[in-house]
Design a protein around this nucleic acid. Structure first.
Length: 489
RNA sequence: GCUCGUAUAGUGUAGUGGCCCAUCAUGAAGGACUCUCAUUCCUUCGACCCGGGUUCAAAUCCCGGUACGAGCACCA
């Protein structure tokens, strides 16, 4: 075979194995115990991008089968699809809610018992752990089918309580990997005390499937062809493959990604965030200090920046730690060309202008796009504001206006207008006219703290959500005419 | 402890035996442009974990070591 002259650098995501255009089905399966976080975005972006690339489908599946340890948050069922759509630019093709698929799971559980590749185990967790490590078969494993079915009834009808019994999948007890030996498929939950938060479900079921069983059955029912998920679920794949063999099904193609840590963020789990929010440590899921999708969105990170970010990281199994600057760089690329320039003066100091100048100053809305027009500053009353920090030098240039020399008579500072044309290398500073500026706040979230930087903002009428570039400061998202949410510099 | 996985510049990433004295991005430094510390453009810096082996040839295959991560939950 002839080699090409030069190896091309692969663009985008690695190729999907065994994929047929139009026949690819992928899924993203979060636990709706909270809205989506930054990490979830990877699952959506990667699976969604493949679905799009292969003209296939993306299923959004709510894995809400735990009512005790990670109880679902009702609002998440509404919020997650919205967030997924925002991030992807399209709606997931199907939405599946595991708690509504219980009949499927029961049906397959019974089939598993009837065909004798599953059994009801009445050992305690500790007892079974010993069997698992010593590779010995649990006594319950030899239950005959009718006994298993009878015990199953006791699980479902409430005779048994949580801890009394679980349904296990038969594997070989001498499997090399201890994690796979006779793994548990369904267990009993106390849904009287911990009802499922969805009123339709509530306390209707006592026996609930565990992730590996639920996910395995659901993937088959939905016709999933490719599973791309974190490598922490590698053993899950192996467990599920064992179950698929029992059922005579073929397991989907799988790919994994490694752990991602963002250098600036600590470890955040959805459960922990939920506790912290409920404890009042944060102002809700979209608190800008939180790594949730809603917070990122609120602070001005765009969906396309998030998509580019995750696609660039790809689907490697390496555990990585990325700095936020990588995300910001993508974000700058996605917003700068559109972002109108505005002036925001922190710690404003008033200056009286002395000398000759015109009454109006025009500066560009966007320096790279003159067609977007000019911003007009009225300086007829000779009063302007500049940042205190910029007053360290006495020779400065007011951006787009004039060179000035500062004069301090001990009480007030005035500015002697020098050249209107720029004719030296003195520092250029941004400024605002007295008329045409309003008191405003720039909200920043730094070092786990929300800060409100007061100052003066150029009057504008940009709608809520507009991304602007605050000259010499950075990018920000317009909240209202007097409030900006800082994005990054 | 048992099991599984990963290891390319500061950070990510491409590379599946010869095109590789290694790709692209980001970062840092310098410069051009610019009436923003923005954008854009240019230049520079900088890496195949270690040790064996297979081969005419290894970042790429094999073995060992080391490091890091994950699973071993009646969580997802």
């Amino acid at each position: 075979m002839e080699k090409r002259e030069k190896k091309e650098r692969r663009e985008g995501l690695p190729e999907l194995k065994n994929a047929t255009k139009g026949k690819v089905v992928l899924r993203f399966a979060p636990n709706p115990n909270g809205p989506l976080s930054f990490g979830h975005a990877r699952g959506i972006v990667i699976n969604g991008s493949y679905a799009k690339e292969w003209d296939g489908e993306l299923i959004l599946r709510f894995d809400d089968t735990d009512t005790v340890v990670k109880p679902p948050l009702p609002s998440a069922y509404e919020q997650i699809p919205d967030e997924a759509e925002w991030l992807l630019g399209f709606k997931p093709h199907r939405v599946v809610i595991a708690s509504e698929q219980m009949p499927h799971y029961y049906e397959h559980a019974v089939k598993m018992l009837e065909n004798n590749f599953g059994y009801v185990c009445q050992c305690t967790g500790e007892q079974f752990k010993e069997f698992r490590v010593s590779k010995t078969e649990c006594p319950c494993r030899s239950n005959d089918v009718s006994l298993n079915l009878e015990l199953w009834t006791k699980m479902t009808d409430g005779t048994f309580v949580p801890g009394d019994a679980v349904v296990r999948v038969k594997t070989a007890m001498d499997l090399k990997n201890p994690a796979l030996r006779d793994w548990p498929a369904l267990r009993i939950q106390n849904t009287a005390e911990h009802p499922h938060p969805r009123p339709m479900i509530g306390s209707k079921y006592r026996v609930w499937p565990l992730l590996d069983f639920q996910s395995a059955v659901e993937d088959h029912v939905q016709g999933v062809t490719h599973i791309i998920r974190g490598k922490d679920l590698m053993d899950s794949t192996r467990k599920q493959t064992l179950l698929y063999e029992h059922f005579g099904w073929t397991y989907p193609e799988t790919m994994y990604w490694g752990r991602v840590k963002v250098h600036e963020w600590g470890g955040f789990s959805t459960s922990q965030m939920r506790r912290d929010i409920e404890a009042g440590l944060f102002n809700g899921w979209d608190d800008p200090r939180l790594p949730t999708l809603s917070a990122l969105r609120k602070t001005g990170i765009t969906a396309s920046a998030l998509r580019d970010f995750w696609v660039e990281l790809g689907v490697t199994q390496k555990d990585i730690s990325v700095p936020l600057s990588t995300l910001y760089s993508h974000n700058t690329k996605s917003i700068d060309d559109d972002a109108p320039r505005v002036s925001f003066v922190r710690e404003p100091v008033h200056l009286k202008l002395k000398g000759e100048h015109s009454d109006n100053v025009n500066v560009e809305v966007h320096p790279n796009h003159p067609s977007r027009g000019m911003r007009n500053f009225d300086v007829s009353n000779k009063s302007i504001w500049v940042e205190k920090q910029d007053l360290e030098k006495s020779e400065i240039r007011l951006k787009g206006f004039a060179d000035i020399t500062l004069q301090n008579d001990g009480k007030t500072t005035s500015a002697q207008i020098g050249s209107i044309e720029r004719n030296d290398r003195r520092p250029i500073v941004h400024w605002l006219p007295e008329s045409g500026s309003v008191k405003a706040t720039l909200i920043t979230a730094e070092d786990g703290e929300i800060k409100h930087q007061n100052g003066l903002l150029e009057s504008h009428s940009y709608p809520h959500g507009t991304m602007v570039q605050v000259e010499r400061i950075g990018y920000a998202r317009v909240i209202d005419s007097t409030t900006l949410m800082f994005t990054h510099s």
